[in-house]
Every structure is written in structure tokens, then in C-alpha cells.
Design a protein around this nucleic acid. Sequence first.
DNA 1: GCCAGCATAGACCGACCAGTCTAGCGGGGT
DNA 2: ACCCCGCTAGACTGGTCGGTCTATGCTGGC
Lengths: 207, 207
Amino acid sequence: MLAFLLDPAAQSGPADGASDMHPTRNRLISVATRLFQQRGYHAIGLAEILALSETPKGSLYHHFPGGKPELAEACVARIAESSLAAIDRLSGSGLDMIGFLRRLSEVTAAWLQRTDWLDGSLLAVIGQEQGGANGPLSEAVRIAYQRIEMRLARWLMAEGIAVARARDMAATIIAAQEGALVLARSRHDAAPVTLVTDMLCSMVERG
Amino acid sequence: MLAFLLDPAAQSGPADGASDMHPTRNRLISVATRLFQQRGYHAIGLAEILALSETPKGSLYHHFPGGKPELAEACVARIAESSLAAIDRLSGSGLDMIGFLRRLSEVTAAWLQRTDWLDGSLLAVIGQEQGGANGPLSEAVRIAYQRIEMRLARWLMAEGIAVARARDMAATIIAAQEGALVLARSRHDAAPVTLVTDMLCSMVERG
DNA sequence: GCCAGCATAGACCGACCAGTCTAGCGGGGT
DNA sequence: ACCCCGCTAGACTGGTCGGTCTATGCTGGC
């Protein structure tokens, strides 16, 4: 979710607290995130990540002693941080949840088309690949979803919705958005994103 | 979507037109489907499929000269056929769309728990892994989604909904269900499935 | 009984995988 | 001036990958 805001945010400058980290580490995470979210964890070899980021293998294992899984964990963590930051930014700018959903829909559709349907949801693809496994990577995905859900729920509560309902609505929003992304990518058609957004908006409107 | 009905249907007997195919071919598709939908296409090696299905490599390449991709295509095609058959069965038994969604929710939740969150959506995981690629495998996923969507839309039209709206609703249903599956698996919690179903039901009720 | 074919069986192959290891660079501290 | 060490650099390795190939059942038609 919200992976697209990595591009503007991470590339533009010192936001996200990503710029204070080592440039090589940063570059590895950026390239790996893009590749993983396009084709999944297992389809991407280290060779491709290293070639695209122009990094030797030694550097990767210096910054990520745990190897590929640790790199993927860092990618998931950064997606989570970026998503939270984006939610905070928008919720702090006076937007209401309906406005957020509309805007999310627009930006998502534009992102999908701009990347020619190559980019997808990192959390979704890695979560699906890891399945019900209990490794640290699937745990990272679980936590990422949970943090995003809680942040959305908090926003909904600030709009006067009861806590239990807010959490349910937040989970529904995430599920529907992720599903829309899956279907839109497969169809090469952004329509599912706007359709799901319409449904989510009326859910929020009805309370 | 609707992958779970493979188990009861394919195992119980001569439904789905699957029993008239060669038993080895059938067994390969069943085992490969289960493995792919648990961990994705790239994470599963032929060795594992062959070991679990007790099939030698020669048989695989006899029945699927195209190798792994062709086997995966057959898995996707079977999921599509099973889903269509299930939809037809339920729509023919006097159930309305709301009843279908409720029932789908119950069966999906039970399936997720029964398989200890290991099983997922074959279409979603393969679709995500293939991404925006234009290979025959991602084309198979696209067609599978499209066929299911058209069948659902037909059902909705039979309930008096206009054609354009019916197609939109069908796409929304599929997107939301797939997303719920993704999130539920990651959280090891079936709640997203029922939450999304509630939302879909009110969408259908409102027309 | 015998042949023809489909299907099984698994040894084998080159490519590629993630990961290890040693060597060397370069700049800040003293 | 020197050294130390965070970091870069890439050759190398054992294992696994998908795929090919030859050999061998097995079975229905004659």
C-alpha cells in the first residue's frame, strides 16, 4: 500500500529519515523495493539488485549481514514508514477520510499507469509468497499492515467514529485497496481502484 | 478466488471434468496448485512438486512439454473452471447474490483456518509475481479474472441490475475478496473477510 | 505372441542461486 | 606520517534450479 509515495518522497530529499542512512544501504533498499514489488521476492536474484544499484556483493553483506531476507525486511519496513508518514502528512493537512480515499485513488491509478503496471504492492506480494509461514519476513509484513491499520483507525476516530468500528473500517480499507491493486494490475486497467474507492467512500459516509 | 472449492470438488469425484483427464496429469495439477497458492510460483521447485505428487520428471514433461510455466497455466485454468462451476452451482440453487457473498465469506474463513493460513489465492499470488509482464501465464490469470467477473456480472444482471453497473459491482466484489484474503492471511485472522463481505453486501443491497 | 505407442523413470547438464572469503581502498583520528 | 577500520570489490563455492535425454515399462490392437 502507498508504495508509490516512495518515489517522490525518497528521491526528493531528506524526508522519511532515509537520507541519514548510508547512501549504499539506501540505494540497495530503493532498488530492491522496486524489483520486489514488481516481481516478488523469489523471482529477484541478488545479481539483479546488485547490477541495477551498481553495488558489489560485499557491500550488500556488509549492510545486511542477514542477506536477502534482511534486505527484504528493510524494504518492508521502509514501505511501512513511508505509508505512515504519508498518512500523517495528509491527515495533518486538514483532509478528511473521504478526501484521503479519493486522493489515494487518483495517485494509485496514476502510479499504476506511469509504471506500465509493473509496480505492485510490496506488502501484498511478499505477504502472499511467505504465506502462513512464521519467518521474520512475514512477521514484518504483518506488523506493517497492523501499523498502517492503526494509523488509519486513529484518523477515523478523530472524525468521531467509535474505536471498534474505526478499526474494522481501517482493515476494510486496506483489504479493499490491496485487492483493487491486484486486480487492476492483472487487467492493466485502473478501474478497480476507483470502483473500490467509491465503495469505501460510501462505507465511510454511512459511518 | 474460490480456490478452496477445489478440495471438495476435485477430490470428491467426477465433477469439473477433471476426472476424465489422465490421473498423473490431474495429480500434478492438484499438487502444484496447492503449492503455488501457498508460496507462489517462483518459490516452488519442480523437485517439490514431483516429490509430493510421486511423479518422475519425465511424466511432467510428457504431460506439460512447456515445463513449469505450462503446468502453472493449467493450474490457473483449473481454478477458473472450478470457480465458474461453483458460481453456477450456487446461482442455480436459488441463492441470491447476498446469500452467495455470505456463504463465500463463511467458506473462505473456514478454509483459511483449516489450512492454517497456508493456502492463499493462486490467481492473486501468480498475478502479482508476474506483474505487468505479458507472458502467457499472466494472460491466463487475466482471463481467469475476466471470466469470473463476467459470470458474477451475469448473475447480478439476472437480479435486475443494469449491465454496466453489474460489471462494476462484479469487479469490486473480486477485488475486495482478493484483498481480504491477502490481509487475512497476513494477520492470521479471518476478520477482514467478513468485514469486506459486509461492505459488499450493503453495496449490492443499495444497487 | 508381438509390436506400437503412450507413459514412466531418473541420470545428467549447464545456468544460476544465495552466501562466503580474502583483498584492497580511502579518509579521519592521532 | 601512519594506521585503523568502515566500506567496497569481486572471485569463488556448494547447492539447487528448470530442462533434456535415453532407457524402460506397460497395455491395447492385431
